[in-house]
Amino acid sequence: MEPNLFNRKGWKRCSLGPDRAPLRCDVKTGFILLLTSAFLLTAVAYVSEFSLKSAVIPVTWYKKVLNKTHTYFAVIENPSPSENRTIVLAPNSIQQSPTPQIPSQTTEISLHHVAHPSNYHFILDEPDKCSQYDPFLVFMVPVAPHQVNARNAIRSTWGNESSVQGKAVLTLFLVGLTRGSEAQQQLEEESQQHRDLVQSNFVDSYFNLTIKTMVIMDWLATRCPQANYSMKVDSDMYINVENLMSLLLKPNTPRQNYITGHLMWNRPVIRNKKSKWYVSEELYPEPKYPTYVLGMGYVFSNDLPGKIVEASKKVKAFNNEDAYVGACLKQLGIKPSSPPDSSQFRVYMGQYKRENFLRVITTLLGSPQQLVNIWKDVKRPT
């Protein structure tokens, strides 16, 4: 069968010759196509004039995020592979959105976001949690809204530890905006069931982990100042709470200006623009970061959150959240402390051996189910 150049219903068909070039077309069809093309070109020219102002960016869901006069990173939907421009959103261009949500497909273009927590507010909150439980230690877990399995695994393992060596322990999860009203409703139902979710109105993405970390610090400073220690811990981590509590209860463990974990020394700032860890000289001019603590799990005295939040007013935000906390500490003149036993803050453990997990404080795991399995084995009677 001879192929056709146009085969949509109602269109005239053009025959193709042996060399795949059109032989003839109905004149009326060609005229209509010419008019259609002219109209489309005019429309494209018209839209392009305003695309950077409104059409490219779905701005309605930014209302609660952009409530201060600052420069934020923008997102555009389905950009072309060569797209490489910075779009700055002004707060007066934002319209009200009834439900906090973000588009299903976004690409971060600019990282000039503002990390200071005063730019955001809590949608879901547990403001009285610490006054009710008076915790000695608080775990704050940054997690994506959709990662229910990770939260449930923590709730059934180390996050279920409410009293360790006679000290109260509290675990809370921090999330950003969901991707729609249905996801938001599910999150709110989960919050009502467990009462351990805190949600803020920042866009929940990899490039906003600095914002996420600073919102954690703000929550601890404003909602839980009575705690002695806190720990920022990723959702894919194993935590031996007994060993951590033993460290914190040692008489020589500082009670103020203290932060420890897996320390990172003399780390170069990545200037390769193709790297997801790229940070410009404008945001951080030094060639190396100050000593900082790897963000998979670090513990700190609870006087630090408020100090770090205050220091962030003077430190430009960049998208390496762990190094950014280190930069804020440098601004404060505070150096991270090496743990008494550095082998207790592990990145990877390799092949599972129960005796190793009995000795560590933190280590990275591969899945929520692995956490559940290892926890059961570590806690089994010997």
Rank of each mutant, 00 (worst) to 15 (best):
V325I: 15
E126W: 07
T69R: 14
N152W: 06
S110E: 13
K12Q: 10
D303M: 01
Q369A: 11
P135G: 07
R271G: 13
E282Y: 07
V148K: 03
P81E: 08
S205Q: 11
P103D: 00
G30Q: 08
T222M: 05
L358T: 06
R8D: 10
S338L: 10
T99G: 10
G10C: 10
I211E: 01
A150Q: 06
P142E: 03
N208R: 01
P287W: 08
V56L: 14
F6I: 09
T71M: 15
W265S: 15
T213K: 02
S275V: 03
P340V: 09
E321Y: 07
M245W: 03
R380G: 14
A55V: 15
G17K: 12
S230H: 10
N356R: 06
P285Y: 02
L283N: 06
I154Q: 08
S51N: 15
L248N: 04
Q132C: 07
S48T: 14
K273Q: 14
K68G: 03
K129L: 07
G350A: 01
L329Y: 07
S280C: 04
P336C: 10
Y238Q: 00
Q101A: 14
S118A: 12
I334T: 02
S37Y: 05
L40Q: 11
I154S: 00
Q370F: 02
K212G: 07
M296I: 00
K68V: 02
F73K: 01
Y284W: 05
F73A: 11
P285T: 00
H262E: 13
R271L: 12
